[in-house]
C-alpha cells in the first residue's frame, strides 16, 4: 500500500513537470483567443510554440514570427508595420504585419490563399544572429541586441509587459 502511495506521489510530480502541451501552457498563461485559426490568431503569443520545428500542430513551421504594436501598452496589434530582419549573411527579409499585428516568416513558398496576410516565404532559412527593425508611418524602432536563436518574438517580448525576463511588446512608437 505504501509503495502504491509512493508511486502515485512520484507520478504526480512527474506530471507536474511534463504534463502540459504548449497550447495548454499558452492558454494558462495568456488566456484564449478571440480570432479564428490562421495568420491573425493568437496575437502576442509565442508563435513557435505550435509552429516550431519540434512541435507543429499548427501545420506550418515559422522561422521568425511575432506581433507588432503601435505602442508598448496597446492592447491590440498594429496592421501595416514593416518588419525588417537582417541575417548574419547580410540578407534582408521584410514583411508587413497583418490586421492583428501578426507577421510570420517561413521557408518555402506561402500558399496562395495566405499571401498578403503578414506572411512571407523565404528561399532559405535565415542565418542567426538576426537584427530587427520595425517601421510604421515614419517611425522606427531597432532592437539594440540581436536574436541568437529564438524565432518567436514573444519568447522575449511578453505581451504581459516588461519584466526581468521580458522587454515588453514589440512596438514602433514611444509613449508620449
Amino acid at each position: 500500500m505504501r509503495a502504491a502511495a509512493r508511486l502515485a506521489v512520484s507520478l504526480l510530480l512527474v506530471a507536474g513537470c511534463i504534463g502540459t502541451t504548449p497550447e495548454e501552457e499558452l492558454a494558462d498563461q495568456q488566456g484564449g483567443d478571440r480570432y479564428e485559426d490562421g495568420p491573425i490568431h493568437r496575437p502576442g503569443q509565442r508563435c513557435l510554440a505550435c509552429h516550431g520545428e519540434d512541435y507543429t500542430p499548427g501545420g506550418q513551421v515559422f522561422v521568425v514570427a511575432g506581433t507588432v504594436y503601435r505602442r508598448a501598452d496597446d492592447a491590440d496589434g498594429l496592421a501595416g508595420a514593416e518588419v525588417e530582419v537582417t541575417d548574419d549573411r547580410g540578407e534582408v527579409f521584410s514583411v508587413q504585419s497583418n490586421q492583428t499585428g501578426n507577421f510570420m516568416m517561413s521557408v518555402g513558398e506561402v500558399d496562395a490563399d495566405r499571401r498578403g496576410q503578414g506572411w512571407i516565404g523565404l528561399a532559405r532559412a535565415p542565418a542567426f544572429p538576426l537584427r530587427v527593425v520595425v517601421r510604421y508611418a515614419g517611425m522606427e524602432q531597432s532592437m539594440r541586441n540581436v536574436i541568437h536563436r529564438e524565432g518567436a518574438c514573444a519568447a522575449c517580448h511578453d505581451r504581459a509587459g516588461k519584466g526581468a525576463a521580458s522587454n515588453g511588446k514589440v512596438f514602433v512608437e514611444e509613449a508620449p
Binding site: 539594440r144 536563436r149 529564438e150 522575449c156 526581468a164 525576463a165 522587454n167
Partner: peptide, 20 residues
Amino acid sequence: TLDCHGVDDRPLRLYSETGL
C-alpha cells in the same frame, strides 16, 4: 540575450541590460 544565457534556469545564467 534572453534566448541564450539570459535565462534564469540555464547553466551560466547571465544578467545584462538588454537581456535578463
